[in-house]
């Protein structure tokens, strides 16, 4: 709820700060007008907000039967977002002390025919409609959740950008804002947070760009306003709060891989048979399962082996971890 209040206020602030001719640009006007109509048609009055594309509908292909969806308050209060603290309960607190995730500019560039820089809501409009998918989420630290994400396939963005033939990888960079993000003033990490996929992985139907969870815009701590979700890879591959998506020819440097190349590989596919050098990856603790629940067995490619196994056919997964 507070989420919506903040957004309403932000919108009012944007309106107040923007000269009228610009504020009433056609696209902007249509977006706001269209949303207003859609929202008043589907939502109770209290929850009307400038949240592009909501409400959305569950994509029946990604219902994920037989697993318990992790409660929302756990999804939004426990995660790694090193820009906002080292402990997993810190991002909820630190990412909400005045950090603005709207308006938000996102750049698509590199080796593609259609590079562009635009506001994130404009991008969401372009790539929508958004849909809901329930995805397993497995952290490299051996804990897991099941999260209902709202967003769209990454492939849609790739198609929009039209990568050139020589583009073999996609590089994702999170925001860099050392003025407002204290952690980014220190050199502990090579900021900004960067991640990468092969172009084939980025076109896979499972690769997803999330703009919301639980049917609401992403909370700041979960990577607002837009983040990557790659459910068959360890969580750190799913970069948050994206500022730039780039098509490149060489395998991009990624943050955790730079920090500890022997521990965090470029592929980082969930694999119970290849341990992290310092801890086992055979099992995982399920968040929300209870104090004495112990751990459950980790699945190959996080349970998505049938869908993604072919991407790595013939590859030595022990070497390309």
């Amino acid at each position: 709820m507070s989420d919506h209040c903040i957004r309403d206020r932000d919108l009012a602030a944007v309106a107040a700060a923007t000269p009228e001719p610009y504020y009433l640009r056609r696209r902007e006007f249509l977006r706001l007008f269209g949303l207003g109509v859609a929202a008043s048609a589907f939502l109770p009055l209290t929850s009307q907000a400038a949240s592009t594309g909501f409400p959305d509908a569950l994509n029946a292909g990604y219902k994920l039967d037989g697993v318990k969806i992790t409660p929302e308050d756990l999804v939004t209060s426990y995660n790694n977002f090193n820009e906002w603290g080292q402990a997993k309960d810190q991002p909820k607190e630190l990412a909400n002390r005045g950090w603005k995730t709207r308006p938000w500019s996102i750049e698509i560039g590199g080796l593609c025919a259609n590079p562009r820089k635009m506001d994130v809501d404009e991008l969401i409009q372009l790539l929508g409609p958004i849909e809901r998918r329930n995805y397993r989420h497995r952290c490299v630290e051996a804990w897991s959740m099941v999260i209902p994400w709202d967003g769209f396939p990454l492939a849609k963005l790739v198609d929009l950008a039209q990568p050139k033939g020589e583009a073999k990888y996609v590089r994702f960079a999170s925001f860099f804002d050392s003025a407002n993000c204290r952690a980014q003033r220190s050199n502990d990490f090579p900021w900004p947070y960067t991640e990468g996929l092969t172009i084939e992985e980025s076109r896979h139907e499972l690769a997803f760009l999330a703009v919301g969870l639980y049917g609401k815009p992403l909370p700041n701590q979960n990577g607002a306003p837009i983040r990557l979700v790659v459910p068959w890879k360890y969580g750190f591959k799913s970069a948050k709060s994206l500022a730039k998506i780039e098509f490149v020819a060489e395998q991009p440097k990624t943050l955790w891989n730079q920090l500890a190349p022997n521990e965090y590989g470029f592929y980082a596919n969930v694999n119970p048979n290849v341990d992290h050098p310092r801890w086992s990856q055979k099992s995982e603790r399920v968040i929300g399962a209870g104090f004495f629940s112990g751990k459950q067995a980790t699945l190959m490619f996080n349970g998505y082996e049938k869908q993604v196994g072919h991407l790595y056919a013939g590859m030595d997964l022990r070497k390309n971890f």
Partner: peptide
């Protein structure tokens, strides 16, 4: 011990130097 949740996990944890 509680975190590992069973003998299996506990024994497995001893495969790691930390």
């Amino acid at each position: 011990v509680v975190y590992e949740g069973g003998l299996d996990g506990l024994l497995r944890s001893f495969s790691k130097p930390f």
